[in-house]
Design a protein around this nucleic acid. Structure first.
Lengths: 193, 193, 193, 193
DNA sequence: TATGAATGAGACTTCATTCAT
DNA sequence: GATGAATGAAGTCTCATTCAT
C-alpha cells in the first residue's frame, strides 16, 4: 500500500507546508518535491497528479480527524456533551497545526470546482457525524423535536467554519480554543428544546 | 463616469454569465468580451485588467445589495424583524440571479489572495450591518445582554453562507427562499434573551 | 500643402517631446495626440501612419539643419574652416534642443529597419555635404591627396555622432559646444596633408 | 554552470541567426526555440526571460572578443601596433560572422533602454581597452602629449563603428577587412604626436 | 525506485488604425 | 475637417507531466 510508505506522508506534509507558506496558486509541484526532499518525478510514483495530492492531503488529515472525534465522543450519550467535544476538537485540531489551518480554511478553497467536489465528499463524513449528534439529541428529547436537521447542521458547521476562517484571516492572533465554550453555548441555545 | 456607461454593466453581466457557466478558471477575457458583444480590447477601456472586472463585479452587485437591505430595514426598529429582512433579502438576492449565486458562492472564492482581500473589503460593509443589527438588539433588550457580538455575527453570517453554498452545490434544486423562516427562527432562538 | 498647416508642425513637435520624455517604445500615438492637443484620429489626417510621423520628424528637423549649415558655410572656401562650421553647427543644434538631441541620438535608433533605412536617406544629404567639404579640401590641396573620401567621411560623421551620443547618454551634463574645437582639431589632424 | 551546457550556446547561436534573418522585432521566442531545436519552455531553463537572451548573447560574443584582443595585443608595447590589432580584430570578428554583424550593428540597437544599458556595461570593457591603449601611447610619447583621451576614444570607437555599420547597411558587399589599414592610418595620423 | 531535464499548450493585454458622427 | 470609441491581432512565459537514464 502506497499510503503506508514513508514518502507518501512526507509529500503530503510537504504540500501542507508549501501551500501554507506560498499560497495555493504558488504551490508548484516542484516546490513540494523540493520541500519533501524528493525529485519532481517521484511525486508521480505516489500520486496520480497534482489534484490527487490535494485530495489525498484532505482525506488523510480530515479522515483521521473524524475518527478521533468519534473516539472521544464514544463515552458520551448526551448530544449537548457530544457537541462540546465536536467544537473543542475542531478548534483544537486547527490550533495544533497552524499550517494545516491555513491550508484547510483558506488555500484549499481556491481550488477548482472538481477538487472542491471531491473534498466535499470527505467533508461529508464530518457532516454525517454532526447529523448523528443532532438526531441523537432530538431522539432523546434534548433538542427541539421540530428541529430541521439539515438546517441545524448547516448552522453548526457554518458557524464553526466561519469562526475558524476569521481566526485564520486574522493571522491566528487570538486563541481559538478559548472561543469554544462561547460557540458551544450559542449553538446549543439555538438548538435546545 | 465609466460606471454609468451601458457597456460597463454589459461587461459585468457578461462576466457573471461566463464565470457561472465555465467556472472561474475558464472564464477568459475573450469569452467575456464575446458574451458582452464587444471586442476584447473594449474590455480594457472600462476595466484596468481582468482582476478589476471581478472586483468591480462584486462591488457592483454586493454594494447595491447592502444598500437595498438598509433601505428595507429602515422602518423596522426591532432587531428580530431586522434579522428577518436580512435573511430574506440575502436568500432572495441569490434566488433571483442563479448565475450570480454560483459566482459569489463558489467561483469567486477561487480567486487569488489579492482579489479576495478586495472582495473582503466589500463584504465588511455587510458584516458591519449585521453587527449594527445585533448591537441594536442588545441595546434594546431583545437579545442576550451578554452576547459576544463578534461570535454572534460569525454565527449569523456563517449559517446564512453555509445554507446558501449548500443550496448552490446542490444545483439550486430546492427553493432557498423557503428556508428563510427556518433559518431566522434558528438564529433568533440562539441569540434571543 | 499639409506640411504648411499649423497642426502638421504641432504634431511633429509633440512627437519630439513625447518620444524624448517617454522613450521610443512608450510613445503611443494617443500620447502624441494628447500632447499636440488634437484627437487621435486627427493625426491620420496629416500622416499616413505612425512611421510617417517619425520619418517626417527627421526630415523636417534634419532637412532644415543641412540647409542652415550650407548657408553658414557659403562664405568659406577653405575645407578646414568649413569643417569647423560643420562641427560647431552640429553640436549647436543638439545643444539648442535637448529633446531633439535625445530623440535623434538615442530614441529614433530603436526604430525598426524600415524606418532606419528611410531615415538614412535623409541623413544622406548630410553625408553628401561632408563629402563635398572633404573633396574640396583634397582638390585645393588642403587635405591629403590620397584621402579615401568615404573612409574620411565615416571618420568625421562617426566621431561627431559618437561624441554627441556620449553627451546625451551622460544626460547632457557638460557643454557639448565646448567640445567642438577639440573635435575639430582631432579630425583635421587626421585628414590634413 | 548553465553557460557551459551545450544548449546554452545553441540557443544563443539560434538567437543570432533568427534576429539577423527576421529583424529584432520579429524574433519571437518560439522562432528562436525552433531554430535551436528545443521546445519554447526549454529556453526558460537557461534564460530568465527574452531580454536575458539578448544580453547574454552580447556578453557571450563581446566578452570573448575583448579577451581575444587583449591576448593578441599582449606581445605589443607600441600603441600604434596595438591600435592596428584592435581595428583588425574588430573588423575580422564582424567579417567572420555575418549574422552576428547584423545583430550587433543594427538589430540590437533597437532594443529598449534597459537592455541597452546592460549592453553598454559590456561595451564599457571595450572602451576601457581603447583608453588603455591611448594612455599607453601618450605615456610612451608615441601619441600627442595633450591628447584628450575621452575625445580620442570617441573618435576611435565612433569611426570603427560607423565604418562597420555602413558596411552592414550596404549588405556587406565589400570586404571590411580590407578597410582596416586605411582606417588605422587615418586614426593614427589624427592621434600621433 | 528515483531522477530532473525537457516539453508545449494556453491566455492576458497593448496600441495602431478605423469610421460613424 | 475633427473626433474618440471601438477594434482585434499577436507574443511571452508558466508549470504540470513525461520518460530516458
Amino acid at each position: 500500500m502506497k499510503k503506508d510508505k514513508p514518502k507518501y506522508k512526507m509529500i503530503i506534509d510537504a504540500a501542507v507546508v508549501v501551500i501554507a507558506e506560498n499560497g495555493y496558486h504558488h504551490a508548484q509541484v516542484s516546490k513540494i518535491a523540493k520541500q519533501a526532499g524528493v525529485a519532481d518525478g517521484t511525486i508521480y510514483l505516489y500520486f496520480k497528479n497534482k489534484e490527487d495530492i490535494l485530495i489525498s492531503l484532505f482525506e488523510e488529515k480530515m479522515g483521521q480527524f473524524v475518527q478521533s472525534i468519534r473516539t472521544r465522543m464514544s463515552d458520551k450519550t448526551d448530544a449537548i456533551d457530544q457537541l462540546k467535544i465536536l467544537v473543542d476538537s475542531h478548534f483544537n485540531m486547527l490550533a495544533e497545526d497552524h499550517h494545516l489551518a491555513i491550508v484547510t480554511q483558506l488555500e484549499l478553497r481556491q481550488s477548482n470546482k472538481d477538487i472542491r467536489l471531491r473534498i466535499n465528499k470527505v467533508l461529508k463524513e464530518y457532516l454525517v457525524l454532526v447529523d448523528e449528534v443532532l438526531q441523537n439529541g432530538v431522539d432523546n428529547g434534548v433538542l427541539s423535536e421540530d428541529l430541521d436537521i439539515r438546517l441545524a447542521r448547516q448552522m453548526v458547521f457554518g458557524t464553526i467554519d466561519e469562526v475558524a476562517t476569521s481566526w485564520v484571516i486574522n493571522d491566528q492572533k487570538y486563541s481559538i480554543t478559548d472561543l469554544a465554550p462561547g460557540v458551544h453555548t450559542l449553538l446549543v441555545k439555538g438548538l435546545r428544546k
